[in-house]
């Protein structure tokens, strides 16, 4: 399953809710405002780091770049739109809007 999260964790509970539902080996893609969770040095860093140990966590590169986020949490992989498409092709998507 591919979980997509597009909400900042500082504003909404989408990521927390997603993490409560994710199963081992699921994929989680942070995009749009969801990429703020991938920023290094935030209060959610340990939560995201832990998630990256259990699931495959990605952040969408163009969204990171647009928001000026260059340092990201260890274990989070950056992917582009082609990568997003590949993830969506391989997995059923559950959007956490």
């Amino acid at each position: 399953m591919l979980h997509t999260v597009n909400k900042s964790p500082f504003d909404r509970s989408a990521l927390a809710s997603c993490l409560a539902s994710a199963q081992p080996d699921d994929h989680i893609l942070l995009f749009e405002d969801g990429v703020f969770a991938a920023k290094a040095g935030t209060k959610y860093e340990s939560m995201v780091k832990e998630a990256a140990g259990k699931y495959k966590v990605y952040a969408l590169g163009p969204d990171l770049q647009a928001r000026g986020i260059d340092a990201i949490v260890d274990g989070v992989e950056i992917c582009d739109y082609a990568g997003f498409v590949a993830l969506a092709a391989d997995n059923v998507m559950c959007p956490w809007l």
Binding site: S21, Q23, V92, L97
Partner: peptide, 17 residues
């Protein structure tokens, strides 16, 4: 519980939010 929902979710072809 959430785990039950997650397991049902994992069986779906489409999840619409």
């Amino acid at each position: 519980d959430r785990d039950t929902i997650a397991k049902v979710m994992a069986e779906q072809d489409v999840v619409l939010p």
